[in-house]
Computed example of a mutant assay.
Amino acid sequence: MKLTVDRDKCSGHGRCYSLAPDYFDCDDEGYPVILNEQLDSNDGSKVTIAVDSCPERAVTLKEGSA
């Protein structure tokens, strides 16, 4: 599984980095920065919650790798 963020859709709510801080951080403007694109199988539920919590659906989790 691979994480992506569409910065054109993102409004900087911060839910992703609040819910999954091992995978997201924020830049100086409050927009998400992905720390780790590849999902660890043990972290699936908290990353899925972070993805599902994005109001703009800017954060996605896709099958596959880099």
Score class of each variant (00 low, 15 high):
residue 50 A to Q: 04
residue 23 Y to V: 10
residue 32 P to T: 07
residue 32 P to G: 05
residue 24 F to D: 14
residue 31 Y to I: 06
residue 44 G to P: 02
residue 62 K to W: 01
residue 21 P to Y: 12
residue 17 Y to A: 06
residue 51 V to P: 00
residue 66 A to V: 04
residue 16 C to D: 03
residue 4 T to H: 07
residue 56 E to K: 15
residue 64 G to N: 03
residue 8 D to F: 11
residue 52 D to F: 06
residue 42 N to M: 03
residue 55 P to A: 04
residue 56 E to T: 15
residue 32 P to D: 00
residue 1 M to G: 11
residue 49 I to N: 04
residue 36 N to W: 00
residue 29 E to Y: 10
residue 47 V to R: 01
residue 6 D to S: 13
residue 50 A to H: 05
residue 21 P to S: 09
residue 13 H to I: 05
residue 4 T to D: 14
residue 7 R to P: 06
residue 33 V to Q: 08
residue 24 F to I: 12
residue 46 K to Y: 04
residue 40 D to Y: 02
residue 42 N to E: 10
residue 27 D to H: 02
residue 34 I to C: 03
residue 61 L to H: 07
residue 61 L to E: 06
residue 63 E to K: 04
residue 42 N to Q: 05
residue 33 V to R: 10
residue 48 T to E: 07
residue 34 I to Q: 02
residue 13 H to Y: 13
residue 3 L to T: 12
residue 56 E to M: 15
residue 30 G to P: 04
residue 49 I to G: 00
residue 24 F to C: 10
residue 34 I to V: 15
residue 22 D to R: 14
residue 25 D to K: 11
residue 1 M to Q: 12
residue 29 E to N: 09
residue 21 P to T: 11
residue 14 G to C: 07
residue 66 A to K: 10
residue 29 E to K: 02
residue 8 D to V: 13
residue 59 V to L: 13
residue 4 T to G: 04
residue 4 T to R: 11
residue 56 E to G: 01
residue 60 T to Q: 09
residue 11 S to V: 15
residue 59 V to M: 05
residue 38 Q to N: 10
residue 22 D to K: 14
residue 56 E to L: 09
residue 66 A to Q: 04
residue 14 G to N: 10
residue 45 S to R: 07
residue 10 C to L: 10
residue 48 T to F: 02
residue 23 Y to A: 09
residue 57 R to G: 06
residue 66 A to L: 06
residue 23 Y to C: 07
residue 2 K to L: 15
residue 5 V to H: 07
residue 50 A to L: 08
residue 60 T to Y: 01
residue 17 Y to S: 13
residue 55 P to T: 05
residue 55 P to E: 07
residue 4 T to F: 12
residue 27 D to N: 15
residue 12 G to N: 07
residue 40 D to W: 00
residue 66 A to T: 01
residue 25 D to Q: 07
residue 6 D to T: 14
residue 47 V to W: 02
residue 62 K to H: 07
residue 60 T to I: 03
residue 5 V to M: 12
residue 14 G to S: 11
residue 54 C to Y: 00
residue 63 E to Q: 07
residue 4 T to N: 13
residue 35 L to R: 09
residue 15 R to G: 13
residue 50 A to T: 07
residue 44 G to I: 13
residue 16 C to L: 08
residue 61 L to F: 05
residue 3 L to C: 10
residue 65 S to M: 02
residue 31 Y to Q: 01
residue 28 D to C: 11
residue 47 V to T: 03
residue 57 R to V: 13
residue 59 V to Q: 01
residue 36 N to Y: 00
residue 59 V to E: 01
residue 37 E to S: 08
residue 50 A to G: 05
residue 52 D to Q: 12
residue 25 D to W: 07
residue 30 G to M: 04
residue 54 C to V: 06
residue 63 E to P: 03
residue 11 S to G: 03
residue 35 L to C: 04
residue 1 M to K: 08
residue 8 D to T: 15
residue 24 F to V: 11
residue 51 V to Y: 03
residue 51 V to D: 03
residue 43 D to G: 04
residue 21 P to V: 10
residue 17 Y to P: 13
residue 43 D to C: 03
residue 56 E to Y: 09
residue 7 R to C: 06
